[in-house]
């Protein structure tokens, strides 16, 4: 009986154990670097539980004061998503390789869009609060940029999957590129676009609930106040409100997206 030769990689399961060792090494290195003290967690866990207990007794009387900021949160998400979408449509068309055939242009704008997408929501919020001041303006601008980054990518990837036949047909009849966009691209992608916009809206509602923590409007402002005043019973009410609104918007948006298909 002749067994085939095992490579060293196979014999000692190098890939598996190698990854495991690298993972463990990184974990130990990170642990030492951050000086994590897990005993502190065990020792102080009662404090965490005490805080949690306070949150288990929500201050229902504060509930009416949550409604207006919560609505402002949704309004911010709505306007931010809309502005982001309006900016994203031309941007996505420029980045789509089947519309703009110049690789240098698509490559360059994609690098810019990728850079925008690396910035998290709260970071943008901190910047915009510094620029335009405290209030929902900063929140709307944050969400505009945030959703612009997300939607642009979803859109240009979507445009690139479409059927190129109609595109070529319009160009062949001597049509302009603007005609191509209007009559060949948008009709093919509109239902998927709406689905992506709804999806982005869901994410924006989630994001907008915390932007106020840094002064960018919405319910996050109340969240910050209650936490800094150690009113965890009020924090609990706000978190419950966020849970309800986010899950409701998710549900509605999911329903709408399923109907679209």
């Amino acid at each position: 009986m002749k067994l085939p030769k095992q490579t060293i990689v196979q014999r000692f399961h190098i890939r598996f154990f190698g990854s495991l060792i690298i993972l463990l090494g990184l974990l130990i290195a990170s642990n030492n670097f951050l000086k994590l003290d897990f005993s502190a967690l065990v020792q102080n866990f009662d404090q965490f539980l005490a805080l949690f207990k306070e949150m288990m007794h929500p201050d229902w009387k504060s509930a009416p004061f949550v409604v207006q900021p919560m609505l402002e949160t949704i309004q911010m998400a709505l306007i931010g998503t809309t502005l982001g979408t309006l900016l994203a449509i031309p941007a996505a068309i420029v980045a789509a390789r089947n519309v703009v055939t110049n690789k240098w242009i698509t490559g360059f704008v994609r690098i810019i869009f990728n850079m925008i997408r690396t910035l998290p929501d709260l970071l943008l919020a901190a910047l915009f609060v510094a620029i335009v001041g405290i209030g929902p303006y900063a929140g709307v601008l944050t969400l505009t940029i945030f959703s612009f980054g997300m939607i642009t990518k979803l859109f240009y990837e979507c445009i690139e999957t479409i059927d190129n036949g109609p595109l070529e047909a319009i160009l062949a009849t001597g049509g302009k590129r603007s005609a191509m966009v209007m009559f060949a691209i948008l009709p093919q992608v509109s239902s998927r676009f709406i689905s992506y916009i709804l999806y982005t809206f869901e994410i924006n509602v989630r994001a907008s609930t915390v932007l106020g923590y840094l002064g960018a409007g919405g319910i996050g402002q109340q969240l910050q106040t209650s936490l800094s005043q150690f009113r965890y019973d009020q924090t609990a009410v706000i978190i419950l409100a966020i849970l309800i609104v986010v899950l409701a918007i998710d549900g509605l948006s999911n329903f709408a997206r399923e109907r679209l298909q």
Partner: peptide
């Protein structure tokens, strides 16, 4: 959404 939001002045 647009008219309900209480936009403060931009600094």
């Amino acid at each position: 959404g647009i008219f309900g939001i209480n936009f403060s002045k931009i600094q």
